[in-house]
Design a protein around this nucleic acid. Structure first.
Length: 425
DNA sequence: TTAGGGTTAG
């Protein structure tokens, strides 16, 4: 496109920023941002929203917020993107604060909508919009200063309310800070305040957030009770009961592991994730013959989970690492050497492979060998020897990081005194 | 053209 005479427009930039967001390619994202400012597209609502999302997903919440604050006007997607950026970066309280601000401004606008309607009925809407926008200090203090007259009028006409996606972000924020009661209040408020009148009823996604949150908090009986009441399609049901299996394993509730595992089996989902979760259920219960039966069944039916893969960007180049490919990976010897050194230091700090780790093999030694070779561990080793100390190491994965690697990363971060960011797709 | 959660062998 650059070589041709076609000029990129806001659509082009919004799409390219989105691509960077998916890949967490901050380098390219920043360059695009610079081009956006140079060409004067920085006032476009959709482009800014894409940038907020991109910076949020690249662990740069401050930059996301800076853009959000500079926007002349925001829509529901911009608000939600900012709430979600906080939630995804463990800044739950900021997410909830922003959401409260949003709700306050919403009711404020609705009240003035009534007033404006009266004025409008008498004559023109313009004067009252001008007055409210320019002179009201309360609205500026509460974040309304960022609303342009144009959008302000639009909001007065339509009202911008949180939607189902906004609430997923809010519940996610609560869940990751163990704000259980706050979360349940929001869930109830969806029906009470925003539901019946405005059509935002909680659906299976919101209830699944609640089940996971209750399960993580160890309130497994409530989680189980809630899971049983949810009317879910088989796809959602498999995830729902899989979630319960995982949290029950974490809290050592063997009874519920078996119960939830049974539900998963009944759903008869012929996909790798369900097979694996069911197999793990049997492993926890010590029923190794069932574990072997499931594994051979998977082999027979040719059901595989996609291979684990991690990548890391150093300057312009992206380096990819697969589980187990230690010796063939770039600077493999250096990575192996460093990994061994770190393992010794981790063990000195009491690092043991937990019996609850979700890698169920019968021989401990094999388990340790498998874990030490996960792609993100190789990528981290490579990052540590190639990326300067002052730069945060950012690793991307196609799957979710396993618990053992998560524990290891936290310890290594303490040992080498550096921050790491690992993001799954 | 822009925004979501939860499960998980190698």
């Amino acid at each position: 496109m650059q070589e041709s005479s076609t000029k990129p427009n806001v659509f082009t930039f919004a799409t390219m920023v989105k691509a960077c967001s998916v890949l967490a390619d901050t380098e390219t994202g920043r360059k695009l941002h610079a081009r956006i400012e140079m060409l004067g597209f920085q006032s476009n609502l959709v482009v800014c929203t894409a940038l907020i999302d991109m910076y949020g997903k690249s662990n740069n919440v401050d930059e996301a917020r800076r853009i959000f604050d500079m926007m002349a006007y925001c829509n529901i997607i911009s608000w939600t993107s900012m709430v979600v950026a906080y939630a995804q970066n463990a800044q739950s309280h900021d997410a909830l604060r922003l959401f409260r601000e949003f709700i306050q401004s919403m009711y404020y606008l609705q009240n003035h909508f009534m007033l404006a309607s009266v004025v409008n009925a008498c004559g023109s809407l313009e004067p009252i919009c001008n007055t409210l926008y320019l002179n009201d200090s309360w609205s500026c203090k509460n974040g309304l200063g960022k609303l342009s007259l144009k959008l302000f009028k639009e909001m007065l006409e339509r009202g911008i309310r949180p939607n189902g996606v906004t609430f997923v972000g809010v519940l996610h924020a609560c869940s990751h800070s163990s704000l259980i009661n706050v979360s349940l209040e929001h869930l109830n408020s969806m029906q009470r305040k925003h539901g019946i009148k405005h059509g935002i009823m909680p659906d299976v996604k919101h209830y699944m957030c609640a089940v996971d949150m209750l399960g993580c908090a160890g309130r497994l009986d409530e989680a189980y009770w809630l899971a049983k009441t949810i009317q879910a399609k088989p796809d959602d049901g498999a995830v729902l009961w899989g979630t319960l299996v995982a949290t029950s394993i974490t809290h050592g509730r063997l009874d519920l592991v078996v119960e939830a595992g049974q539900k998963l089996i009944e759903l008869n989902r012929q996909v790798a994730t369900s097979y694996i979760t069911v197999s793990n259920t049997y492993a926890v219960a010590g029923k190794w013959e069932n574990v072997h039966r499931i594994r051979s069944e998977m082999k027979q039916k040719n059901v595989y989970k996609e291979p684990d893969c991690s990548w890391i960007q150093v300057k312009e180049t992206i380096y990819v690492f697969y589980a187990g490919y230690v010796l063939s990976c770039i600077r493999g010897n250096g990575v192996v050497h460093l990994s061994r050194e770190l393992e010794v230091k981790m063990k000195e700090r009491g690092y043991v492979q937990g019996s609850n780790d979700l890698v169920f093999v019968e021989v401990e030694e094999t388990k340790e060998k498998i874990l030490s070779l996960h792609g993100e561990r190789l990528a981290l080793g490579f990052g540590l020897i190639t990326i300067p100390k002052c730069v945060t190491i950012r690793i991307m994965k196609n799957l979710r990081m396993c618990r053992a690697c998560h524990k290891a990363f936290k310890l290594i971060s303490e040992i080498v005194k550096r921050d790491f960011v690992v993001r799954g797709m």
